[in-house]
């Protein structure tokens, strides 16, 4: 029997937040963490869909953990998760912990309440949002925006590390086209490359 492994470098496990590296020419993760302390321990990472907010959050959490802090990573799926956030805010030690909250805007009105509570307890917290809410006075730590060069760099990194086939390649022009078609949304662009990669690798199999 013929058995083959089609390892697709654009599978979720390789492109999910935390799995891919974060590149920035002007700042490092440690600098970002220091900036967070400078601005009062509470800040927002702001940016459109698929621009790398969750990736930065994940890497920041790793850096904080390496510095000996206890990290609470929370991912919000709906406003009901406000209970979970409240529980963490109420029970954690503000001096030795940091909270990272992904998709804060899904908390709606409860987000405002939790902001007040975090301010009151002096909790160190970083949250991601698509746009800064008018009622939130926390400073913006970083505006994320991906560009086609970053996309190309990430793609080549993934191909080098995880590609199952060495014969499949993507040209710079094609990558630029994919990136622009998805308006800079890296997640969607990776999904399109996933499909390309599957088609190419199975065509290669058929040819054999």
């Amino acid at each position: 029997m013929s058995t083959l492994v089609f390892q697709n470098p654009f599978s979720t496990r390789f492109v999910q937040p935390g799995a891919i590296p974060w590149f920035a020419a002007d700042t490092s993760l440690s600098t970002l963490l220091f900036r967070l302390y400078d601005v009062g321990n509470r800040a927002i990472i702001c940016g459109p869909h698929g621009s790398g907010k969750s990736t930065i959050l994940s890497h920041l959490a790793s850096v904080a953990q390496r510095q000996g802090l206890k990290v609470h990573c929370l991912r919000i799926c709906s406003w009901i998760d406000a209970i979970r956030v409240m529980r963490v805010f109420a029970t954690m030690n503000p001096k030795q912990s940091i909270v990272s909250v992904d998709s804060w805007e899904l908390l709606g009105f409860f987000g405002w309440f939790l902001c007040q509570f975090a301010d009151f307890r002096g909790i160190c917290v970083v949250v991601t949002v698509h746009e800064k809410p008018w009622w939130n006075n926390w400073p913006v730590l970083l505006h994320t925006k991906a560009n086609d060069k970053t996309f190309q760099r990430l793609v080549y990194g993934l191909m080098t590390k995880f590609a199952g086939s060495k014969t499949i390649e993507f040209s710079n022009a094609m990558l630029k086209d994919v990136f622009q078609r998805h308006s800079g949304n890296l997640r969607e662009a990776f999904f399109e490359l996933y499909d390309h990669y599957e088609r190419q690798s199975r065509r290669t199999l058929s040819a054999k």
Partner: peptide, 18 residues
Amino acid sequence: HIFFLGSVPVVRLPAKIE
């Protein structure tokens, strides 16, 4: 380290797509 359980053949693309 990958191994295989069972013997389901590899899925091929439908002829139209190919």
